[in-house]
């Protein structure tokens, strides 16, 4: 896994961004940027350079799912790996996210280990389909 890949964390709750950032740092990922909702994330993503997106689901204004859909319809971002952070693994929700093109989901709260497993799985799948 490329520990230098540039990761964007999107969450409206700054504390949560801090938590995820710390967990990523524990896993050796230090190249992290943050955005506080879908609307601010999109320009950053379109600016290029982001290699992995970790986004919250439940956000005001633009939800994680809406952000995901916007990303998948954007030519340049269509294959950006996206990990969705959710509060619960409701089937309906996750299926919706999968159909919208999510690469993985992770249920809050999680440990660094769970996060590592999820990230590994996302990139294994991408490597396999490449």
């Amino acid at each position: 896994m490329d520990k230098n890949m540039k990761i964007l964390i999107v969450d409206d709750f700054a504390t949560m961004r801090g938590i995820i950032k710390n967990l990523l740092r524990d896993l050796g990922y230090n190249n992290v940027v943050e955005a506080d909702d879908g609307n601010t994330a999109l320009p950053i993503l379109r600016g290029g350079g982001i290699q992995f997106l970790v986004t919250d689901w439940n956000m005001p204004r633009m939800t994680g799912l809406e952000l995901l859909r916007a990303i998948r319809t954007d030519e340049k971002l269509a294959k950006l790996p996206v990990l969705m952070v959710t509060a619960e693994a409701k089937r309906e929700q996750i299926v919706e996210a999968a159909q919208a093109g999510v690469n993985g989901y992770i249920v809050k709260p999680f440990t660094a280990n769970t996060l590592r497993e999820k990230i590994d799985k996302v990139f294994e799948r991408i490597a396999a389909s490449a």
């Binding site: 540039k6 943050e34 600016g47 290029g48 350079g49 998948r72 319809t73 159909q99 991408i126």
Partner: peptide
Amino acid sequence: CVPAVKSVSGEIVDEPPSAAPAPTAPVIAE
């Protein structure tokens, strides 16, 4: 298949995965 899905995976299949990030345009920082 839902259209959104098609475009996702379509991209993954059609184009070789490029690890190199696009030249950095001005990123709106926090």
